[in-house]
Amino acid sequence: MLDKYVVKNGKKMKYGYTTGSCAAAAAKAAAYMALKNKIIDKINIETPKGWILTLDVIEPAIKIKGQSAFCFIKKDAGDDPDITHGILIGADVEIIDTPDIIIKGGEGVGKITKPGLYLPVGQPAINPAPLEMIRSEVLKVLPDNKGAIITIIVPEGEKIAKKTFNPKLGIQGGISILGTSGIVEPMSDEAFKESIIIELNMAVNNGLDRLVLVPGNYGEENAQKLFGIDKANIIKISNFIGFILDKCIEKKIKKVLLIGHIGKLVKLAGGIFNTHSRVADGRLEIIAANLALIGASKEVIKKVFQCVTTEGAVNLIEEYKYHEVYGILCRKAEERCISYTHENLEIGVVMFSMEKGLLAIGDKAKEILEEF
């Protein structure tokens, strides 16, 4: 029930809402029904983006028994080509007499089986932002002296997960419950590239000749939080780093600062300029090769290749105290970017980790940062 649109490439495209929003809405609705012993057909939630959603509670599946209730919410990805569009996401909620919120993963919700993700091994694959959404929305309907045991269920989750990267990441048995903003913004590659060009044109028209490019929300947050960079100087570019660097040259931009997660920007050190994992990966290979060059043992290199994410590799680097590799990776990423643009741009690279925070600032990045 989200009647918001964005125009991309001349086409009106509808926003959707995430699996995290669905889980939070189902949990809140089930908690309310268990407390009131009353069926409802709609539920309101507030997303981290600040938008209020009014979602339909799927009536044929509603069950109330004693201090427990169960219901589904239907996922709507809007006009985004999302594999989870149209699936049902449910919550089984039991009200308890202690003020605790316990969130579990049921049928169709993946389980973490390998280290290196944002959650411990053995936990359900419900990411931190959706976990917080579920807690906060359920607390809105619970009396002070009551708590809840919440089990999230996705009947089609195990089948759908086989078409995702979850098995490769060591997430078994279902999908991940995702979404940092609670909202799905529709995009196609061409439409998104067009939107980047529009932002770039606006920046140029406003007289800017230095820009900060970030892959996504986390990069933007860190650019503002770590360095106090004004949001007006920041453009989100997703995976299209090579594309936007070319456009920056075309628009006479002089200096670019790339700030982002090591999982994206480490690819630049290997000459990869479209960082989507389906186009090219090599993250662990690049990290492993550079660790070997500074003397890491065969044992450490093997462990790097056993990681499922760059966060896992970062934990290994911290454990074995090879911190110097971060600076090396930043410098190599800068060198590759400068070579890619034939020295028509000054380019600096800053890498961070979700768990460890700022990892390294490239030599060129240090110079450019002084100008922001």
Rank of each mutant, 00 (worst) to 15 (best):
residue 258 L to F: 10
residue 145 N to G: 08
residue 26 A to P: 04
residue 296 A to H: 08
residue 163 K to N: 14
residue 232 A to C: 03
residue 257 L to G: 11
residue 107 E to M: 13
residue 7 V to K: 09
residue 7 V to W: 07
residue 9 N to D: 15
residue 147 G to I: 05
residue 124 P to V: 09
residue 54 T to L: 01
residue 265 L to G: 01
residue 359 L to M: 08
residue 118 Y to N: 08
residue 321 K to C: 08
residue 321 K to T: 06
residue 115 P to L: 08
residue 125 A to T: 09
residue 91 A to R: 01
residue 197 I to R: 11
residue 170 G to F: 12
residue 225 K to G: 01
residue 138 V to M: 06
residue 166 N to I: 01
residue 308 V to N: 13
residue 90 G to T: 06
residue 49 K to L: 13
residue 63 K to Y: 05
residue 369 L to G: 03
residue 228 G to Y: 02
residue 255 K to C: 03
residue 174 G to N: 10
residue 32 Y to T: 14
residue 179 G to L: 10
residue 328 I to G: 03
residue 252 K to P: 04
residue 184 V to T: 12
residue 317 I to V: 14
residue 142 L to R: 01
residue 120 P to F: 03
residue 360 A to K: 08
residue 366 K to I: 02
residue 295 G to T: 10
residue 244 I to N: 00
residue 243 F to M: 08
residue 179 G to K: 12
residue 233 N to G: 00
residue 344 N to G: 11
residue 14 K to M: 13
residue 93 V to W: 00
residue 176 S to H: 04
residue 70 F to M: 05
residue 281 D to W: 06
residue 3 D to H: 12
residue 180 T to L: 12
residue 159 K to S: 07
residue 236 K to H: 06
residue 210 R to A: 04
residue 13 M to N: 06
residue 317 I to C: 10
residue 85 H to Y: 06
residue 172 Q to D: 12
residue 143 P to G: 05
residue 357 G to F: 15
residue 93 V to H: 02
residue 205 N to T: 08
residue 162 K to R: 14
residue 229 I to W: 07
residue 257 L to N: 10
residue 251 K to M: 13
residue 96 I to L: 08
